[in-house]
Design a protein around this nucleic acid. Structure first.
Lengths: 336, 336
DNA sequence: CTGAAAGCGCTTACAG
DNA sequence: CTGAAAGCGCTTACAG
């Protein structure tokens, strides 16, 4: 049906060996023969069969992307798309293709991480959005499959990861509020099943400490990165600690929840309460007042993850790569 | 290296033929043999090599998703993720995997649609986000590769498509404004390179016509589905036609632009101007006032596209499948 | 510079 | 119910 290397060989009057070598740019074939073969290949509209090649070379030129819960509201949802775009961009030059795996507890029962990757013979995988308690996490710690994680700190001889400097970012956000004159600063954090939550908490604490503001555990609420979580946490914080004048959030989505809660309580932003978010999702600049937040370069996270994965596949040593962030000052926090 | 069917055959003392048949559930193998083989396969942690199987069966159990401009702001961006989640869900039962192709003018010069699909031997493809002027569009009209498009009307013996009833949806949105008492209704449409723009325009016109309101071409502005486009279009409409009391938008993103423009002009929503959007992106319910809009069931669009593609691959006849939409009334339009 | 041959891991008529 | 053999489309030592 489709034209094969064999057809070309027949037309050109050479062996399939020569055709293969000519088309793959091997030097040991005369330019004349190569030209002839190339011309015929083009005329016949030949497309190499990547499956057949994959079988013999044991390389598929494919990497996997493993994510959980694609559209359930969660940590990574807001910028999944940008990370994905970054990954695709990072894979482009080396002509790797991307196969997308979405996993859930049910599928994970049936298929281990290694099996998932081996079934499709991906040469490596990028993993995003898994909770720390996810069964794949333990497996990845011991895997021999080249893997790069996003925002999940695991480093082995085959596994690296990419993330923002969450400690530093949270430190900057909190310091900014302190510089504005705030002393009673709440923190609406993500859930305890994400490494970033602990890192951001650490940054928050560091900023307080550096400015001699005592850390008060009751000012910190672990929500779940969602809007609803933020909404409830805001109310709790304000009811129980009316002296709070500013709140730092571990995600913009949770900050959106605070906007809603503030409105419900008749509080004005930033007159009555100053808010700072994390992520810089599209919404952040569109809402009124525009949200001051930490921008993560999510495209670059994806791009870097892809490049690093390719490097690991080539045999380089996995690393933790830090992607620069930035505090974006808008209108949701005021000077006290 | 990895364990193969041959290893199992050796351990079990049978031929590879029998192993293959036992593992694939063929009936013509004794239960005793099958049990033994299955047990050994499990013990050896055997994973079938899908590449090898693909080579002989000429089936890859893979479909492609073709999109352009993943993160550039555009029509499909706001709900790409949900469509994708729907596709994954639709593919799950039949155990098809998804390989993601992103295309741009440069890549399209080098690789035709057929070549893109044939290179990876995908059994079919779902296409989303191509402009009508995209070179792939013409190619898809003549392709023999099973294809399902999203929001792009092409119907051949191998190509079907899935979309909302855009005419009806725009008709309902406009009718809603008319019922509220509005007579001078502007329409900020998408660009002319999308089929949905023309369909929505038709629905807008139909609603006016049905209510004996003359259609005024100057009330319609073709923007580009983006926030900036909406912002500029709003200003133009309001400056040139201050009698306008309501505006229907072909996307929520453009409606967001109108929110911003209204704010800049000191106009209140809905007191001074009533707005209706299209899509129901997350933002729509979060912004103040919450945006009245048309909700598209984008998850279902993806799910249906996947199921339909599988059907076409099985030999069924391609169709145009319509996904139900819904007018979601919130606070951005008022009774006149 | 070129070709014959083996082999990648599987499936599938065909024969028994 | 089971096996020997051919073959899917390619790559790659090896020999010349």
């Amino acid at each position: 049906m489709a034209v094969t290397i064999k057809d070309i060989a027949k037309y050109a009057g050479v062996s399939v060996t020569t055709v293969s070598r000519a088309l793959n740019g091997y030097p040991d074939v005369s330019e004349e023969t190569r030209a002839k073969i190339k011309k015929i290949a083009e005329e016949l509209n030949y497309t190499p069969n990547s499956i057949a090649r994959g079988l013999v070379t044991n390389k598929t030129q494919t990497i996997g992307m493993v994510v959980s819960e694609l559209i359930k509201p969660g940590v990574y949802h807001p910028f999944f798309l940008e990370v994905l775009a970054g990954i695709k961009a990072g894979l482009k030059k080396d002509r790797y293709d991307l196969i997308l795996f979405t996993v859930d507890p049910e599928s994970q029962d049936a298929t281990s991480y290694e099996k998932l990757c081996n079934d499709r013979k991906v040469e490596g995988a990028i993993v995003e959005g898994l909770r720390l308690s996810d069964p794949y996490i333990e497996e990845i710690k011991g895997t021999q499959i080249p893997t790069v994680l996003i925002d999940i700190p695991i480093l082995t001889d085959k596994v690296g990861y990419v993330s923002s400097d969450n400690v530093q970012a949270a430190f900057e956000a909190t310091s900014y509020l302190i510089k504005l004159g705030h002393k009673n600063i709440g923190f609406i954090n993500g859930h305890k099943d994400a490494a970033v939550s602990f890192e951001r908490l650490e940054g928050y604490k560091k900023a307080l400490e550096k400015n001699d503001i005592p850390y008060r555990e009751e000012y910190v609420i672990f929500a779940d990165f969602t809007q609803e979580g933020g909404y409830n946490a805001f109310k709790t914080l304000i009811f129980e600690h009316p002296e709070i004048t500013a709140i730092f959030h571990a995600s913009d989505l949770m900050a959106m929840g605070s906007y809603r809660a503030a409105k419900d309580l008749g509080m004005r932003i930033p007159e009555d309460i100053s808010l700072v978010g994390f992520d810089d999702i599209e919404l952040a600049s569109l809402i009124t007042p525009a949200l001051t937040t930490i921008r993560q370069d999510t495209f670059k996270m994806g791009y870097t993850a892809a490049k690093h994965l390719l490097a690991i596949i080539r045999g380089e040593k996995p690393q933790h790569i830090v992607i620069p962030h930035k505090l974006v000052v808008r209108d949701s926090a005021r000077k006290l």
